[in-house]
Amino acid sequence: MNDTAAGSMYERIGGAATIERVVESFYRNMNLMPQAQTIRAMHGDGLTGMKIALKKYLTEWTGGPGVYSSEKGHPPHMRERHATFPIDNYARDIWMDCMDQALEEHITDEGVRAQLRENVKTLADQMRNTK
C-alpha cells in the first residue's frame, strides 16, 4: 500500500485503535448478516485467532509496524493461505459487504476510506479461486 506525504494509510486511518474497531465490526457484521453465513462458517467456531491475525495483517499491510510477517510470513502469500476455501465472486462480494460496513462505521475521512476500500477490494479479488 502506498504512503503519501500525509503519512502511511495506517497513520491516516488512526492506527491500531481504528484497525481494532474495523476488525471487530467486520466480524460482527459477518455474524449478523444472514447472507454471510457461508463465509462466516469458513472461519470456524472461534474467531479470536482470526481477529488477531486480521488485525496484524491490516496493521502491516496499511504501513504500520511489521507485526504480521514475523509470525505468518510475507503478506503476499495470502492467496495460498486461502486456497483450501472455495472463494467465488459471491463470497468475495459478501466479504466486501462486511468490510465496507466496518470501514464506513470507523473511517470518517471519505477520501481515505475510498482509497482503503479500493485497496481492500483488490486484495479480496485476488483471493478468488473458483467461479
Rank of each mutant, 00 (worst) to 15 (best):
N2R: 11
A6K: 14
G7M: 08
S8W: 05
S8I: 07
M9W: 00
M9H: 00
Y10S: 00
Y10V: 02
E11S: 13
E11A: 15
G14M: 05
G14P: 09
G15M: 04
A17N: 11
T18L: 01
T18H: 01
I19A: 01
R21K: 15
V22A: 08
V22S: 08
V23E: 04
V23K: 03
E24Y: 02
S25D: 14
S25Y: 01
Y27R: 12
R28W: 03
M30A: 14
L32E: 15
M33D: 14
P34I: 06
T38D: 13
R40I: 04
R40D: 11
A41I: 00
G44V: 06
G44H: 00
G44I: 01
D45Y: 12
D45W: 11
D45N: 12
G46I: 02
L47I: 12
G49W: 00
M50L: 08
M50V: 13
K51Q: 14
I52P: 00
I52Y: 02
A53E: 05
A53R: 14
L54C: 02
K55H: 04
K55I: 03
Y57T: 07
T62M: 13
T62E: 00
G64P: 02
P65S: 10
V67S: 10
V67L: 10
S70K: 13
G73S: 07
H74P: 03
P75E: 02
P76V: 04
P76I: 06
P76S: 14
H77M: 12
M78H: 03
M78C: 03
R79M: 05
E80N: 09
E80C: 00
R81V: 04
R81E: 01
H82Q: 11
H82A: 12
H82G: 11
A83C: 06
A83P: 01
A83N: 08
T84M: 10
F85A: 09
F85K: 10
F85H: 14
P86Y: 07
P86H: 12
I87M: 06
D88P: 00
N89K: 15
N89T: 10
A91G: 13
D93N: 13
M96F: 06
M96T: 05
C98G: 13
M99C: 09
M99K: 08
D100G: 11
D100C: 09
Q101Y: 01
L103I: 09
E104H: 11
E105M: 09
E105N: 10
I107S: 00
D109K: 12
D109I: 09
D109P: 09
